[in-house]
Design a binder for these strands. Sequence first.
DNA 1: TCTGGGGTCCTAGGACCC
DNA 2: TCTGGGGTCCTAGGACCC
Length: 416
Amino acid sequence: MTGLADCNNFFVSCERTLDPSLEGKAVVVLSNNDGCVVARSNEEKRLGIKMGQPAFEIRELVKNREVIALSGNHSLYRDISVRVHDIFRRYAPATIDYSVDEAFLDMDGIPASALPEIGAAIWDSCWRELHIPVTLGFAKTKTLAKIVTEVCKKRAVHAGVLTDENLKWKLLDMTEIRDLWGIGRRLAKKMYQGGVYSIGDFARLDRGHVRKWLGVNGERSWLELHDVNCITLAHIDRRLQDSISETRTFPHDVEDYDYIRARIAIYASYCSQRLRQMGGVCSRATVFLRSNRFHTENGYHAPEMTFRLDAPTDDAVVLVKTCVGLLDRIFSRGIGYKRAGVILSEISDARAVQPSLFNPCPTMREVPEKLMRVIDSLNSGSRSHGTPAMRLASQLTVHHKGYDDGFCISFGSVQP
DNA sequence: TCTGGGGTCCTAGGACCC
DNA sequence: TCTGGGGTCCTAGGACCC
């Protein structure tokens, strides 16, 4: 059996651990720049507020105090995330951390009859130790466990175990196809056009037809509904991610090159720091810019460029230079940019680096490695609480032009 | 007026190899 | 006038997830 442990309204629940007066009230957590809704309490969901809904659309509700809107506190969420995952690990022989607030529990070797009690124990630990409510679903495959968890959430049940075949088909028939894991907006529409409305409808289709119609992913979902485990999520288990990215939407449309260059340098530097923490090196760096996708009078601009590095690296100096170089090639004057980002990819293990053919001397890496170690140790812990203690000069704007996003020139503890 | 961020996987088409 | 077969790799775009 496979379990799914899923925290309820995670960001909102985290906020409630800090401020218990939020309990029972309608609360939303907003994205960067307080742009849109990224988490809702149950009370909100009943008010009909949607995930991803722009914040200005709920302004009236907030003004009338029907809804409390909070800016996200992501270091808090990360912190609590680590602790709930630790609790999950206590109760399952093996777990896969699937997201900040979700984990799959491999219950291999544990009799199904013991699962209700284990589910109750996990719920109890999360609530007593962290004040985070969770919901647990157990079934033969991950896809079925997802369905069980959703049904439990809707009925405010802490944990559910699905073993009975008749009950399974009853659940599949009463659950809409758009709620199936792996079916998003587009595929749901396609399903409706094909006359498929419930998950039960889908599961009763011919397997060959599903394969031809929806490809391998559709077939996998179909198999999972028929008790065949085939979503392995091997990538979740990997120590190294495929890519690391930092992207931001700016509070305004920005034409200022210096400002954008400093942002790109900051993103590249932070990506490289995460890369080093992971023990990886990357071979590709991508920089992209986006104009405002809601203001397209002057067209929509979305330039991007990727550079393949000579040799894989985790060196902030190299990566910042590379990314600023890419920016220079895609940046156009006179265009207002609303978003920018850096993506590092083709990540491999830093302990198994293939040196560049043109720069094969291994000692060449010693200086940057030492430098990075020093910077990382000076900055350790400081990133989540504000400005890092040590930065590259390119991370500063030459002229601070009054963008009110919290960035300013700082000389830290160095005497002027 | 105001509209997030970080990921993965699959597919089709083009370019290339022998 | 006629013009093969079996592959791999890369990229862009589209879909999904939380």
